[in-house]
């Protein structure tokens, strides 16, 4: 059990970092793009919101396994499968939490409108500079929200981990699995303590971040 706490935090932290790198450009593309593919891509990204995590976990089990499309790459790396590994869980978490990152950031980009971007370009800012120094600060609220939601969601992710993880202590046994096992084996006091701890911690993370965000907004005003 003690190993599960740092492991879960590491999984949530690493997944959130990867989601920032992946989700912010995706959200920009969705907010700025025009054409039928925008909504099609948006729908694909939103799928994890509606699909049961066990379904996602099952597909990932096939996808990351020795008969999946990634198998040749895995063989090059000397691996049999990505299931039952921390790496596999990170990939799964990124997939499952992608809509939690992309949706708020996309909304933030859309709310900014095209004026600041065009103004920056007119003033001869390079597109990269305009994005980093104009757009990202303006969209900071959405990005912070996306990161908090992704972190909190990964912290509590259960169905996907159950299907893909194989319950290996120190590698794939995250907190939600420990709680589940405690309930299954009637260790309800332990399950209750962990669940309460998790709820309090999640509440704390969200509260602290939201307060920091509100203070920043006041300072800016």
């Amino acid at each position: 059990m003690p190993a599960a706490i740092p492991l879960t935090l590491e999984l949530a932290g690493l997944s959130t970092a990867l989601l920032l790198l992946l989700g912010v450009p995706l959200a920009w593309g969705l907010a700025r793009g025009r054409g039928w593919w925008v909504e099609a891509l948006g729908a694909v990204i939103a799928l994890p919101l509606v699909l049961p995590p066990t379904v996602l976990g099952f597909y990932l089990l096939i996808l990351l396994g020795p008969h999946g499309p990634l198998a040749p790459l895995l063989a090059l790396a000397g691996l049999h499968t990505l299931a039952f590994s921390f790496t596999g869980l990170v990939i799964g978490s990124v997939v499952c939490s992608l809509p939690f990152m992309v949706q708020p950031v996309r909304s933030a980009f859309a709310a900014i409108g095209s004026a600041p971007w065009e103004a920056a370009l007119t003033l001869r800012a390079a597109p990269w500079d305009a994005f980093v120094f104009v757009i990202l600060p303006l969209a900071r609220g959405g990005i912070v929200t996306g990161a908090i939601l992704s972190f909190a969601h990964t912290l509590g992710e259960f169905g996907m981990v159950l299907m893909l993880g194989g319950d290996i202590p120190g590698k794939t046994e995250v907190l939600s699995i420990v709680i589940f096992n405690d309930v299954e084996t009637l260790r309800w006091p332990e399950a209750g303590a962990l669940a309460a701890g998790m709820a309090v911690f999640s509440f704390g993370v969200i509260l602290v971040t939201l307060r920091a965000e509100a203070r920043m907004a006041r300072l800016r005003a």
Binding site: F58, L61, I62, L64, G65, P66, H67, H80, T81, A83, F84, L162, M163, G166, D167, I168, F180, E184
Partner: peptide, 21 residues
């Protein structure tokens, strides 16, 4: 090398999908 399914049906799934030999 042990990987643990929640129940026997899930252990079966791990093997049937080839993830566990």
């Amino acid at each position: 090398k042990l990987v643990t399914g929640e129940n026997i049906a899930q252990a079966y799934q791990f093997i049937a999908s080839g993830n566990a030999e």
